[in-house]
Structures are given as C-alpha cells and as structure tokens.
Amino acid sequence: MALKLADMRTEVHNDWCPGCGDFGILSAVQMALADMGLNREDSVVVSGIGCSAKLVHYTNVTGIHTLHGRPLPFATGVKLANPHLNVVVVGGDGDGLGIGAGHFVNGGRRNVDMLYIIHDNGVYGLTKGQASPTLKLGEQTKSLVYPNITSSINPLVLAMACGYTFVARGYSFNVQHLKKLIREGIEHNGSAFIDVLQPCPTYNDINSKEWYNGEDRAEENSGKALPRVYSIEADGYDGHVDTAKGRDSEKVMLEAMRRAVEWGDRIPIGVFYSNDEIPTYEERMHHRVPEYMDVPPAKQRISDNRKKPIADITPFMDELGV
C-alpha cells in the first residue's frame, strides 16, 4: 500500500520557531520517504541534539534521538547490525561538524550505506545563537558579542575529503529540489551527505531567507530580487563519477570542490559529487563473510529452544588446548 504524506506525520506538537528552515527539511524527508514506498518499519531516522534533532519525533518511522554529535555512530551500529534497514541521519552543523566532527570524518572512511543530512544554519539555535562551525569568519549574527573570530568549515569539501561517496547541498526553502536530493541520497549505495542551507529566523540575521533570496540585491531594470541560490545541474554541471568514460573520481572531485567553495552572490545547490564505484562497508564485510547479508548480527539465532548457546566454541578451545 502506497504511503501518503499524512502517514509520515506524527501527532507530536512541533515546537520549532515560526519561519524556521527546519520545516522545509521535515517536509522533504517525509515526502521522500512516502514517495519511495518503503514499509514504514524498514526506515529509521537517527538524530543528534538540537532543533534539527526533534525531526524524528515529527516523523512517523522509528526515530532514535541520540546524543549531541553522536548520531552517526549510533546509526552505523543500527545499520551494520541490520544492513536491510533504510537509515537516515539528521543533525545540525554544530552537532556534526563541531562536537561530532570526528565521527563525520570517520563516517566517510567507512562508506556505510546511509544518508546523513546536516541542517546548516550557522548557529547553535537551541542555546541562543552562538557561532557554529559553518558561520563565516568575521560575521556577527544577532547573539554574538563580537564578530566571529573563528574560520568556517566547508561541509561539502570536508565530506569529499573524508570519503563520502555522494555529496550534495540543498536549500530548505526549495522543498521539491531537496526532496529529490534526499531520495537520491537514500538510493545512493554508500554514505551520502547532504548539507542543507537552513535559515534560522531567530538567531541568524545574516544568512536569512531574504538573504538567500537575494532581496538585498535587485535587478537593475525590473527591481526583482536576484536569488543567490542556483542549481548546478541546471547550470550544466554533472558530478557523477564514471571512470570508464574518463570521469574518474579525482577529476570529478576537484571540479566539485571548485564549485563547492563558491559563496556570496552565487550559491550552488545540487549534487556535487556522486561515486558508485567504491564498495560500501557492508559489501566489504559481505566479501569476507558470505553469510553477512542473509543473516546479519541482528538476525541470527543465538540459542536453541532449550536456551542453550549454539555457537560452537570447541574449535577455538582446541586451539588453546594443552
């Protein structure tokens, strides 16, 4: 039975601020999951801590709201123990690139088949707007006593350097485009990362919805706003690696990084880099353990009907035998 968008919603009261970019991400996630026609129990959304992390409570699939910075290792455990689950991870930029940066880096190395979405708003909203790792050097958002003294991370470049095999950026007020990215990210075989630009109407008064829409810069003749956000695909960019056709990962990644550092008046969104040629962690494991996909750790019998162990440890004791 096909799922409708309404099936993906829970009755939990949503307490995000009016106008928050998180609403767009929530809708896009729910629409993508409904569209894909997966059984609800086969999907799990794992989140960190912060406004973004509450997304799991508003979404009607199993939701694991974890610790600040730790959604990736939680999700990795869920997925590796049962690789048949569809695992989506959501968190904030402070969560994933500040306190959880070590997991972000190493998550790329593993290339576990799951999607990681970062709500990127440049601030720590739930603690009243401190600078996050993506806020640009010298910017002074509403809560900051002084301009930001720390440089920013470029999440897309970092993700590629770490080994994520699908790297994209979305914009939370372009829900249809974001939904498409999320679906592609879920369908991608490997670790997919989507950085979602998400205005925080309460604490980030610089990178606001109006700013992304370019309302501060009008076209000379018509007076119409000139949006900063544009689609790289529409611009003719193709980020897919296809070594056989001469588009190897090094070539595509360098081009993708060049596009990813674009910022200011032109901010690209879309798929920057996508590489299906690198085996996932699960495939690497399956190569070593042929039974892994059929009977992964979570699906194994461990005792007989008398509750006795069934793993035969005798050969291992024999190896130690004297």
Partner: peptide, 29 residues
C-alpha cells in the same frame, strides 16, 4: 555458519554509541 562483527571505531564515544545502535537493531552487542 554464524558470524560476529567486530568494528574498530574512531574513539570510545563511537564504540559505545555504535554498540547501542547494534543492540537497537536486535543483536547482542
């Protein structure tokens, strides 16, 4: 054949949280 997965993580924070993830999926972790 049975199988047992051992994952070397990036730190102990990851080790405990990943083990919890495995338990949530139903494995003795």
């Amino acid at each position: 054949k049975g199988n047992l997965m051992v994952v070397q993580t990036e730190d102990e924070i990851s080790a405990i949280t990943m083990a919890i993830g495995g338990a949530l999926s139903g494995a003795r972790s």
